[in-house]
Amino acid sequence: MKKRNLILTIISIIVLAIFIFYADSNFDAYQVRILNLCAIYTILGLSMNLINGFTGLFSLGHAGFMAVGAYTTALLTMSLAAKEQNFFMQPLVAPLNSIVWPFLPSLLAGGLMAAFVAYLIGAPALRLKGDYLAIATLGFGEIIRVIFTNTQNITNGALGLKGIPSSTNLWWSFGIAIVTIIVLLSLINSSYGRAFKAIREDEIAAESMGINLFKHKSISFMIGAFFAGVGGGLLGSLLGTIDPLMFRFLLTFNILLIIVLGGMSSVTGTIISAFVITIAQEVLRFLDEPMNFGFAVVQITGLRMVIFSALLMVVVLFYRNGLMGSREFSWDKLIKLFKRNPLVKGGTK
């Protein structure tokens, strides 16, 4: 059984690879970009779901971690010429102005940097609970952004960074998304993952079962921040330009939306919801354009967001726990669904 599931998983990854290969050469730039965004939002959603959904820490500092990752990756990958062009107000500080790293190590460095920042923020913030933690992390996220606006000789301040080499392509984004899924699934189903869920279910009971709350919350927070940093790095490289305003708390809420709609403790739900929301936001774009009703041509700017919000409300009203709740996809369930066996009752399965 286990072997069969592994084979099925490998086959589906190969199918995905073939699809990416096809998409890479046949889709137009716009479609490729949306697919990239889908994969990046999957990474971001999963990283936030680890913290908020699986460990039950209501953290809203995600945009801050993404900013750290995006800036670190950008500053490490940018060519020396681009750096010189960007930093005309004040020159870039010493080691950064002379190094250019390849993409993968830069992404990892971005993730590690974000995890380090999470460690620093976590030390005071993770002693708080519930809404207080949300407010504190929201504040820290904003502080990161404000610091980035004011450190002219490192981040180029409000001017942002332009000319980031666009290394992100479908292979990178989907590849890293798959790695994220595998790592997080493995973590969630391990003893540490069970400890995270115990903290979510009941902190007091978890603590008296010998789980060091602070240590485990920090681990979850840092791993979540690591993937947020990697996602931020991919996003920066995809867009080619970043500035501090991009990482306002609205970005955090976009990701929160994905995980709430997908189900707060479901990896499957987050993946589905990341794709659905990213694509829906593009598909609904026609609502902003002039529409011909026959008798009149109407253009309501912003209608897209109104409809989008209404759709969200419907989903939240009728699927209280998100699309998937805490359920997960498994091959066994899928096969059961297709194998209609009328002799189950009283017979052998």
């Binding site: 973590l187 391990s190 869920k197 978890a206 079962m209 010998g210 789980i211």
Partner: peptide, 23 residues
């Protein structure tokens, strides 16, 4: 109890304090 988790998981969590491997 950890309500959403299974009976076995509840007991497994109590074993976590003996885990020596890191994350």
């Amino acid at each position: 109890l950890f309500k959403e988790l299974s009976v076995l998981e509840n007991v497994l969590i109590a074993n976590h304090l003996n885990v020596k491997s890191n994350v």
